[in-house]
Amino acid sequence: MEVFADRAEAGAQLAERLLDARDPVVLALPRGGVAVALPIARRLDAVLDVLVTRKIGYPAAPELGVGAIAEGGEPVFDLRMLRRLRMTPESVADVVERERRELARRVRAYRGDRPLPPLEGREVIVADDGLATGGTARAALRAVGTAKPAKLTLAVPVGAQETVASLREEADEIVVLLTPIDFRAVGQWYAHFEQLTDADVLDLLGRR
């Protein structure tokens, strides 16, 4: 059942729920989160930037996430999943190193040599297009948390109920428009949910 026409519409709806934010920094999780974050930053007249994350996949089936890493943070593992697979964090060290390299490549592609904006003492809104397992969002929130923001908010249009509940301890506030019982995938709640490219991300950032 489609609820949002596209990520931009979802972001515009989220922005109306974030109007109490005081001079926030909006950090988008690329790639899809950038299209959600742009209308939020515009509505709040906020600084917009990206916070790059990468999923850490199970080597035999890379689409199965066993953890994630965000720039400025350490890997965050799904320990229950690792135990189920009879693995340890050390078992995926090669995958972590590969994802660190790809993370660094994307940071250079999206931001060049420019660092993240200062976050200490600021309100920070981390935005993505949805929450399935929540692995990358968790890694992002923990990485931002080390910068000691005044308030840390996670803003997403849609998320699995159990995932949203599991992330509440990672942020001061979670703003989510929809937590459907029959959640199967983020894309099912959008009429248009095309995959974005690095060029799309740069275009969106340039339109701030």
Score class of each variant (00 low, 15 high):
L154N: 02
L119M: 15
T133G: 04
T133M: 07
G121F: 12
L116A: 07
R100K: 15
L152F: 00
G130K: 14
A93N: 06
D128Y: 11
A155V: 03
R114W: 05
R98G: 06
K151R: 13
L131E: 06
E90L: 12
G134L: 14
R108Q: 13
A155R: 00
R106K: 13
E99F: 12
V124Q: 08
I125V: 06
R106I: 02
R100G: 09
A139D: 00
L119Y: 01
V96G: 10
T136S: 09
A104N: 14
T146K: 01
L119I: 10
L103G: 07
G135N: 10
A109L: 15
V126K: 11
R138W: 05
T153L: 00
G134V: 11
R114D: 12
R122W: 02
R111N: 14
L119H: 00
R101E: 14
R100A: 10
R101K: 12
A132E: 01
L152Q: 00
L131W: 01
E99A: 09
T153D: 02
L119N: 01
A137V: 08
L152E: 00
P118R: 06
P117F: 11
A155T: 01
G130V: 12
D113N: 13
A139H: 00
P115F: 02
A137E: 07
A147P: 11
L154P: 02
R100E: 13
T136W: 03
P149S: 00
R100M: 08
A109Y: 07
E123K: 05
E90S: 14
A139G: 02
I125Q: 06
D129S: 05
A137C: 06
P118S: 10
E90H: 08
E102Y: 00
V92N: 04
T153E: 03
Y110A: 08
R100Q: 14
V144R: 07
E102M: 01
P115M: 12
R122Q: 08
D113V: 05
L103I: 15
S91I: 01
A93V: 04
G121I: 15
K148R: 04
G135F: 11
D129F: 09
A143C: 04
A127V: 15
S91E: 03
L119K: 01
V126M: 15
V126F: 15
D129Y: 12
E90M: 11
P149E: 02
A104E: 15
L131F: 02
E120H: 14
E102D: 07
V92G: 03
L152I: 10
A147E: 14
L116S: 10
A132M: 06
A150S: 11
A150G: 09
G121N: 09
K151C: 01
L119C: 08
R111F: 06
P118D: 07
A147M: 11
R142P: 00
L152C: 04
P149M: 04
G145Q: 04
R114V: 12
R101G: 08
R101A: 12
V107M: 06
R108T: 12
E123W: 07
R111Y: 13
E102Q: 06
P117E: 11
P115A: 08
R108L: 13
V144F: 01
D128P: 00
R108D: 11
A143T: 00
A93K: 07
R142D: 07
D128S: 10
